[in-house]
């Protein structure tokens, strides 16, 4: 980005959204962090992110380029799409972590339901029993399900605070190797979290039915 020149006037842009010389909109970067002008940290201040989002929206939205050249209109459309996509990803801690993992070359696939985390095996077994009982009309299973829900929810909270700590450690990591090691850990916690979230959803659906 640093070496790029303005498509309009040919002057160097130093990676800015608008050419410092002629003020024309440039082809946007697709890196969400760079786009928002933020360092790649896992902890972000939501208020600051929102402020940046609004401010960039005001500058880049296609509404502002109705009477501009086709090139600028296209760049505005692309830039605003990246802005909106990026805001959606970065404002949620989980999707933000997944984004960083992908950027760093980690594979973040949806976990198969078969791959139950070993420490949850017993819980899941009991849950499935209770779900079966509820389905055949055994109302006493409802109480058990409510207990399960409370337990899964506290598990999820626990996982979230675990993530939070890992985020802090990642942001403070001194070198690439230790950062990658932490990301590896985060990936494992995210898988566990996804599994627990599915369980909570499932129980809540059954209880609501």
């Amino acid at each position: 980005m640093e070496g790029t020149r303005c498509w309009q006037c040919g002057q160097p842009t130093a990676g800015a959204l608008f050419c410092p010389s002629c003020n024309h909109l440039q082809q946007p970067t697709s890196d969400y962090y760079k786009f928002f002008g933020l360092p790649q940290k896992l902890n972000l201040d939501p208020g600051d992110l929102q402020k940046r989002f609004y401010s960039l929206s005001r500058q880049l939205h296609p509404d502002r380029f109705t009477r501009s050249t086709p090139t600028e209109r296209q760049y505005s459309l692309e830039a605003t799409a990246i802005l909106n996509d990026g805001y959606r990803v970065l404002r949620d801690p989980v999707s933000r972590a997944e984004y960083v993992l992908r950027q760093r070359g980690f594979d973040v696939g949806e976990q198969r339901s078969k791959d139950v985390p070993p420490e949850l095996l017993e819980e899941v077994f009991e849950l499935n029993m209770a779900l079966e009982e509820l389905k055949v009309g055994d109302e006493s299973a409802r109480e058990q399900l409510e207990e399960s829900r409370a337990r899964f929810r506290s598990m999820r909270d626990e996982v979230d605070s675990q993530l939070q700590q890992l985020f802090v450690r990642y942001d403070e990591s001194a070198d690439q190797d230790s950062a990658n090691a932490i990301l590896q850990e985060i990936r494992g916690v995210l898988n566990r979290r996804r599994y627990i979230r599915n369980l909570v959803d499932q129980v809540e659906r059954e209880l609501a039915a």
Partner: peptide, 8 residues
């Protein structure tokens, strides 16, 4: 409910 423009 994704803000538009949006892309994938």
């Amino acid at each position: 409910n994704s803000t538009i423009p949006a892309s994938a």
